[in-house]
Write a protein that binds this DNA or RNA. Sequence first.
DNA 1: GCGACAG
DNA 2: ATCTTGTCGC
Length: 255
Amino acid sequence: MPVFLDAGCPLRDYPGASARPRRSVIAKPKIRWNVSPRQAIVLQKRWAKRVILVDRIGRLETVAGADIAFDPSTHAAFAGVVLYRFPELFEIERVSVQGALRFPYIPGLLSFRESPLLLAAFARLKTAPDLILIDGHGLAHPRRFGIACHIGVLLDKPVIGCAKSLLVGEHRALSNKAGAAVPLTFRGETVGMVLRSREGVKPIYVTQGHRVSLPTTLKLAKQCLDGLRIPKPTREADHYVGALRIAYQQSQAAQ
DNA sequence: GCGACAG
DNA sequence: ATCTTGTCGC
């Protein structure tokens, strides 16, 4: 019978993981995701200690953006990953997977809803990303373990969270000029940066996920911008899964 | 108890 | 996340 570890357990800790043949570059962690919200909170507190907040990046030649689209009418969800050459941001490949979201959306527990499908998509990549951008928060989280931290710990990869709105924390006003940034603080600690990614737009929130320092988080997030509000990797991943959702919707309506 | 609350 | 058109501005 299969052996499951707690959600949040890194693949390398799975019994026999090293002896197991790896089918993909980014093997999908064997995780039991069907936990209760209360259990999920306990797991977040436990696994938050695994997060590495200093730069452990190594070679940085590829960056991936990941996102999910959900269709309320059909229950279908699509996870997509778009991989780019870094820093040129030329696309290398894109992969996706369709599936169901089996955990409700609860602020603070987003990763328990979206991670399973996201990891399934990552497992389809032919080339391993050196850096990952996730649509959501990392350290700027009630228990300092947002989805960017969770994905980072599970895949043991450098991850940055790029969120479009605030979950926790406060910050000073920031200039309307592109590139302006101020610290995001929560309970007296800096948990990210608020970045005006483009002049005059709502800022985005860039936070440490895993194996990246705060200064590097800001620097790399900026390097993934190409003139629009949302960094190219996550923006394209969002468009990608959005198009898949529409196509699926139409294929269903035709039957 | 009240309000806040990623996607 | 998704529901939704036009419209103001660079």
